[in-house]
């Protein structure tokens, strides 16, 4: 990924340089210049209200605001976790419904996955609305991004009498699938194990 490709979207908006001199507020914008990573980088994407931020908290131990109202996560948050002995950076993104953004917050998420070379994109979906949310999964697969699907909120789906066949879904889509109930931390170990496979396999790629 060359930086000249992304400077349009990655740069912070015009900001009075006086504020920067005073050291106010430019911290967040600096975060967006995260091109070219030496270690594994993973983005969490998905529509609003599917538990992305909660999962991000569980994965990184960094608390960002968990919200079930569209628009309360507006910045990309990042946090780290050591998986399989390697440092892995996770990005939490504002909600997006499809690859074509409508609002500015959706653009933030799309810019991240379109402009960064990510090692893995974790698409988080709500088990209760699987069919509707697979739309974005299919778009991500189409884009040939490395995708892992997390089917979250299995607990709530269960209350409605819905069960999802994890293996069957993985076969159908041709990507790894993990079913979870992030609020109860169910499935977290399984997810980390899957991500760990991933971290190792990127290392293997380097050594080959």
């Amino acid at each position: 990924m060359d930086c000249h490709d992304c400077h349009k979207s990655c740069q912070p908006k015009p900001q009075n340089s006086v504020w920067k001199l005073l050291g106010f507020g430019s911290k967040k914008s600096a975060k967006s210049n995260f091109s070219r990573h030496s270690h594994t980088t993973i983005a969490l994407v998905g529509s609003p209200n599917v538990g992305k931020s909660l999962l991000f908290n569980l994965l990184t131990g960094t608390y960002v605001t968990v919200s079930n109202y569209p628009g309360t996560t507006v910045e990309v948050a990042q946090g780290n976790r050591i998986i399989a002995g390697e440092k892995v950076t996770f990005f939490d993104t504002p909600g997006m419904y499809s690859l074509i953004p409508i609002t500015e917050e959706e653009k933030v998420a799309r810019d991240l996955i379109m402009n960064e070379t990510l090692d893995l994109v974790i698409h988080v979906v709500d088990a209760k609305h699987l069919g509707r949310m697979l739309n974005l999964t299919l778009q991500l697969i189409e884009a040939e991004l490395p995708v892992l699907l997390v089917v979250n909120m299995m607990d709530e789906a269960k209350k409605l009498g819905i069960w999802i066949d994890e293996n069957q879904l993985a076969n159908k889509l041709g990507i790894p699938v993990v079913t979870m109930a992030a609020a109860q931390k169910v499935g977290l170990k399984k997810l980390i194990a899957k991500v760990a496979d991933y971290v190792q396999s990127t290392l293997l790629c380097v050594t080959y």
Partner: peptide, 28 residues
């Protein structure tokens, strides 16, 4: 064209859902 494209994608998504979801008849 957006609609035409979305329609195909949606049909596949729904077909996949049908295949992997186990759901009782009555809608709670």
């Amino acid at each position: 064209l957006s609609l035409a494209i979305a329609q195909s994608r949606h049909q596949l998504a729904m077909a996949i859902e049908q295949d992997v979801i186990i759901q009782p008849q009555e809608q709670r």
